[in-house]
Simulated assay, not measured.
Amino acid sequence: MVNEINVDFGNGTQLSAQTGNFTIETDQPFNEGGHGSAPTPQDLFLASLATCAGHYARSFCESKNISMDGMTLKIEYKMAPDGKLINKFSYQLKLPDGFPEKYKAALLRAVDLCTIKKQLMSPPAFELELV
């Protein structure tokens, strides 16, 4: 099955990606010649990684009827010395008060199921062609 995302070139550094019924806008920051009107593509990538992990945390808690009140997830990332690529992600999941001890390890395993992270761990082949 082949899926697709179509990109429209907007004004200046703005881009729009059409995926299904959704349009995702991107731009570059002011200091890189953009308008700062939307997240950068890298911001979207990082947000997808964080929200994917959050999805698995939520699914786990819902399956066990565990309240998520007070639960937070933060992902910090460290850039490589050349400042171009990320070389480390650190996930920090703050549990709500009273989170059952017996489910802590299982919750970590559930968050580790994130498909975006798994995709990074097993990268696909990339092809580029002019048509």
Rank of each mutant, 00 (worst) to 15 (best):
M1D: 08
N3K: 02
N3S: 02
E4Q: 09
E4V: 03
E4L: 07
I5M: 03
N6K: 15
V7I: 04
G10W: 08
G10C: 12
N11I: 05
N11Y: 02
N11V: 10
G12P: 10
G12E: 13
L15K: 09
N21E: 07
F22P: 01
E25Y: 05
E25S: 09
E25V: 02
E25A: 04
E25H: 12
T26R: 00
T26V: 02
Q28C: 04
N31V: 06
G33C: 03
H35L: 09
G36Q: 03
G36W: 02
S37N: 12
A38N: 04
P39Q: 08
P39F: 15
P39E: 06
P39M: 15
D43M: 03
D43T: 07
L44W: 00
L44Q: 00
L44P: 01
L44E: 01
F45A: 01
F45E: 02
L46E: 05
L46P: 04
A47R: 03
S48C: 03
A50G: 12
C52M: 11
C52I: 10
G54Y: 13
H55G: 13
H55T: 06
A57E: 02
S59A: 10
F60K: 09
C61N: 04
E62D: 05
S63A: 15
S63Q: 09
K64S: 14
K64D: 10
N65Y: 12
N65G: 15
N65V: 14
I66N: 12
I66P: 07
D69R: 07
G70M: 09
G70C: 09
M71Y: 07
M71C: 12
T72M: 02
L73H: 07
Y77A: 07
K78N: 13
A80P: 03
P81Q: 14
P81F: 14
D82T: 14
D82C: 13
G83T: 06
K84Q: 10
K84R: 13
I86W: 04
I86N: 06
K88P: 01
K88G: 03
S90I: 15
L93D: 08
L93V: 14
L93P: 10
L93K: 09
L93W: 11
K94T: 15
L95E: 14
D97C: 10
G98M: 09
G98H: 12
G98W: 09
G98T: 12
F99S: 11
F99R: 10
P100F: 15
E101G: 08
K104V: 15
K104L: 11
K104P: 06
A106F: 05
A106P: 04
A106T: 07
L107Q: 08
L108W: 11
A110T: 09
V111C: 14
D112I: 07
L113M: 15
C114W: 01
T115D: 01
Q119M: 08
S122K: 07
S122N: 05
S122W: 03
S122C: 05
A125N: 00
F126N: 05
E127V: 07
L128V: 14
L128Y: 13
L128I: 14
V131D: 07
